[in-house]
Design a protein around this nucleic acid. Sequence first.
DNA 1: CATGAATGAGCCTTCATTCAT
DNA 2: GATGAATGAAGGCTCATTCAT
Lengths: 194, 194, 194, 194
Amino acid sequence: MKKEKKKREAILQAGLIIFARDGFYNAKINDISDLAGIGTGTIYLYFENKEHILKEILVDIWSTVKEELDLILGKTNITSKEKIAKSALKIYELAKRKSQIARMVLQEYAIWNDPTFENLSKVMGGIRIVLFQLIQEGIDKNEFKQEIKPELAVPFLIGAVWNFIEFALQNVDKYPQEVFENQIQILVENTFLK
Amino acid sequence: MKKEKKKREAILQAGLIIFARDGFYNAKINDISDLAGIGTGTIYLYFENKEHILKEILVDIWSTVKEELDLILGKTNITSKEKIAKSALKIYELAKRKSQIARMVLQEYAIWNDPTFENLSKVMGGIRIVLFQLIQEGIDKNEFKQEIKPELAVPFLIGAVWNFIEFALQNVDKYPQEVFENQIQILVENTFLK
Amino acid sequence: MKKEKKKREAILQAGLIIFARDGFYNAKINDISDLAGIGTGTIYLYFENKEHILKEILVDIWSTVKEELDLILGKTNITSKEKIAKSALKIYELAKRKSQIARMVLQEYAIWNDPTFENLSKVMGGIRIVLFQLIQEGIDKNEFKQEIKPELAVPFLIGAVWNFIEFALQNVDKYPQEVFENQIQILVENTFLK
Amino acid sequence: MKKEKKKREAILQAGLIIFARDGFYNAKINDISDLAGIGTGTIYLYFENKEHILKEILVDIWSTVKEELDLILGKTNITSKEKIAKSALKIYELAKRKSQIARMVLQEYAIWNDPTFENLSKVMGGIRIVLFQLIQEGIDKNEFKQEIKPELAVPFLIGAVWNFIEFALQNVDKYPQEVFENQIQILVENTFLK
DNA sequence: CATGAATGAGCCTTCATTCAT
DNA sequence: GATGAATGAAGGCTCATTCAT
């Protein structure tokens, strides 16, 4: 990794933590640069402004999510029911593993669709498409209810999983992990089955 | 309606619109007072500060939602499946009727659980309880899947409906209303059925 | 006392207490009107503005002081030494009896000489003149040091007594009253004696 | 002098002038920064807030006074009478030399004892102690009146000198300097002598 | 006369961004 | 490239004063 890349990375890492802790509007650029171990001005060598740091963080995370979903969609040896359950579980696992990241992403939901964040919208759009395909596939294979309209089911599904995760992260100690993993799959599967 | 009430109401109405348009942090107190047709300082005769305006707006809205859910929960002549579908539909209708309000509420999701907003947390907690009871009832009556844990299903359900509405409000022209109403019920019902 | 007078009086009484408690700049007009048991606007029927309330309070108090000093100056059967000691004692007693008033007067020292407070300056000027005459008399009668310049001794004396009182009021419990009374006389007498 | 020090100093200098001209409550931060030739925000790089600027100014000045008094107290080759006279003269000279500073200090008397200004109270306390020792010494050496209680004489003395200076600064042209210097010494000496 | 709700000018402070070194 | 001191626009909030009732 080159030096330049290293500093960009440090800013993103620090931004992640500070944004997650304070939220976008209460996060201070100086806190980010301090945590990143660089000068205040250096931030502006790598990012246009505060918003662009957040944008890139969110794009990174959701890109990872999308990659995982693409893998699942591409599998041929499992049912749609299994695919959709696996997708939910995968997202849950990702969120748990990087709970700090997840928290941040979840809290800044208001920005997901902000038109000024083009790249982000693009990534989010990509995720919606994958999920759309996943659901459509289930319908086509007659595994899922025929009345379901995939384009409307997608936001339903995303909101459900997202808020479930938010809850799970806040109540990490109240239930064994298996319960969370089990429940998210049951609920998601059930949502679409005939 | 007394004069005093009228001015409070004007502030809340204006706050609603400005907060929905700009988000909490970008909303300017002067924009709110201008829109309300009052002086800057007048705001502070009725509200402690900017946060408290938002708080009250959110409490008002969620209180209405809770009242409706209480009514549904209290019915004795319908199945749990119907109750849960009706609940989702009711929330959807409320949101549609006051879409501006809904938008605002949805965007400020980050504040729902903010412990500094006591009253709000209380109302949200109340809603969670009603939904919990609704789901538990379905399980007890053996209408819903026994494996479902209601306390985990609640955030799943809330997130699902909330994000579905967000989507519906953004795509109001793309589908006839019946489709939205139909889909939200199908998806919600399905989530819990055996 | 007529009604009108009564309300003026109430404002002055309340102003006294609030100004003494909070200082001029931190005192709030509403606190004064509340304490006076009248409406906010009523204040402005009797006083031009906040400053004029303070002005009148200070004029009242210093006028009382001046009257007492005039009486002492007019006496013919006592020495100048006794007169000057008696003057200091008198001021001390006045201050003690109305310690709340005194506190206020003392703390707003910065205003004593403010040119915008004409009447006040006039009263203060009157006090200076009385003290001047008192000291001059002592010099003329050869009781006091001939080198003393009365016009310069006056501010010395005023500052001394004033700050002594400030200290006494703050340490009311640490010494018996006789000690304060005794000391103020000794110190003042001594200052001028041959 | 380093750059950093220079800017701090510029703020203190400007604060001095503005506070002296307008008083603490009427002084505007922007006036200070303008006069200091810096940006508004720069003030807050060096001082927590408006109050802290004033605090530091006052501490600086009174510290200088204390140092001078310590020197005088330490002398062994002069009488207590001379010491006390010299102290008063020294303070007078300091005030004259930096009359603008003195004016400011005098006008903000109300803050001298404000408990929120710890450092300042500490310095003022130090001055009181030195004067106490000075007077006690005179009593012990049987130069001063035995009946005098030093702890009560101190506020008397401080108030006297402070108000004398205030007067002197306002009437600088009316008397030759020697008169002021002469009188302050006579009055102070006399106050304590047997 | 009396009221107190309404006003809005004014000010301290913050913090994203810049730029001289 | 890197820095961090400096900037100054912006905005929430206060409170003396007003005026319709």
